[in-house]
Write a protein that binds this DNA or RNA. Structure first.
Lengths: 202, 202
DNA sequence: TGTACATCAGTGAACGCGCGTTCACTGATGTAC
DNA sequence: TGTACATCAGTGAACGCGCGTTCACTGATGTAC
């Protein structure tokens, strides 16, 4: 919170962040469908029109929430990865697992967040630079796979095939489960299947 | 269209189907977000309240549209599969490919449909029997994989790992691409990676 | 240090809207006798 | 074959609502001199 906290009621101080944070809170509880600018403004204690100094429209606010969630997911993954130290094949395998598990746990814990992130509101022109929003998570995956190779846990000839395969399996299983089309109990065994197919042995 | 077509204006004849069909049409064009009962009723030429004889509420109509789309997807897949005849390994591989490609093509052609199908509106209790909605597509996959094994294109030891892996890769890649998080050009090579990892050789 | 002024960050009222849903109703239909 | 009546499948008006957005505005702040 910025300096001018007490003596200032008229100027909020950091309304943009507050809008995103509050929109986030509502999304977490009820999903995007029930998110309205007016409710967000009211919760903050500000008039609805104030939001228009920061976002051109409602959609822009929702997109801002979505993009901030991608950052948070990456933060969470990196925190969990950091807990697993060591340069052995075993450690590398554990980190690879952790990457898949954190993605899933994040989604299951806050399905409304996951839905927003991959909804039309965060739809990104596939030619634009903005696809980098995903990139932190993808870079983590890249690193993990490189480590698997350098520690001998993954054969070099599988490396090229492993990247998009890991990505799509983890995302696909997670979103099918979040959508209720697959039982959560299958998730671990899907990761097993993935590792097995890539030739990563226990 | 039923018999009493001309002499009857008051009774529509098959309003339930008309509601679904029209809701489908609107969804195709604009997505679920902009679908309203009133517009659907108006398009059909019926009062909004008439819909309540067939659906308890708006959500129920949207869910009905969604579930009918699962059927259509399966129909489409089966039509495409039927075009590839033969009991050779080559034919089995082609059918397996076709399964993955039709899923993707369906989604790309009508992204609003795909989004509805995997949205919260078609969220299904994962314990309920209704998960069979997916089943026809899954049964097709099962058959394809069995053929791959019986023709020698897929090793028996990979069979168990192939089912959920194929499913999640295809769904994951498709939904990432539809969501703009992955370039469509990657799709074919992801299928290549999948086949390669399962030991299916060209 | 004081003042004038541009700019920033809000207010609050209003517009205009379409929405989902309810309710008492009526026209059409099918059926038992 | 004709009639009474239950049931089915619609109407249409109304309720009550919250919504996104615009607009002219004003209070607070920062800055140049």
């Amino acid at each position: 919170m910025p300096v001018a906290r007490v003596r200032d009621q008229y100027h909020h101080g950091d309304l943009e962040s507050a809008l995103i944070a509050t929109a986030r809170k509502f999304t977490k509880r009820n999903g995007i469908e029930h998110l309205s600018l007016r409710k967000v403004a009211q919760e903050i204690g500000v008039s609805p029109s104030a939001a228009y100094h920061y976002f051109p429209d409602r959609d822009a606010l929702m997109a801002a929430v979505g993009f901030s969630l991608f950052e948070e997911l990456a933060d969470y993954q990196e925190r969990e990865l950091a807990k697993i130290t060591g340069t052995t094949a075993k450690a590398a395998k554990e980190r690879y697992r952790a990457l898949g598990k954190t993605y899933f746990e994040w989604a299951i814990k806050e399905p409304h967040f996951f839905n927003l992130m991959f909804s039309e509101h965060c739809l990104v022109d596939s030619k634009s630079e903005e696809k980098r929003e995903d990139n932190r998570a993808f870079i983590n995956l890249t690193k993990c796979l490189d480590e698997l190779v350098s520690t001998g846990a993954l054969e070099e000839r599988m490396r090229g095939h492993s990247e998009l395969l890991s990505w799509t399996v983890v995302h696909g299983a997670t979103s099918l489960i979040v959508g209720g089309h697959l039982d959560p109990e299958n998730y671990e065994s899907i990761l097993d299947d993935l590792e097995f197919s890539l030739g990563i042995r226990k």
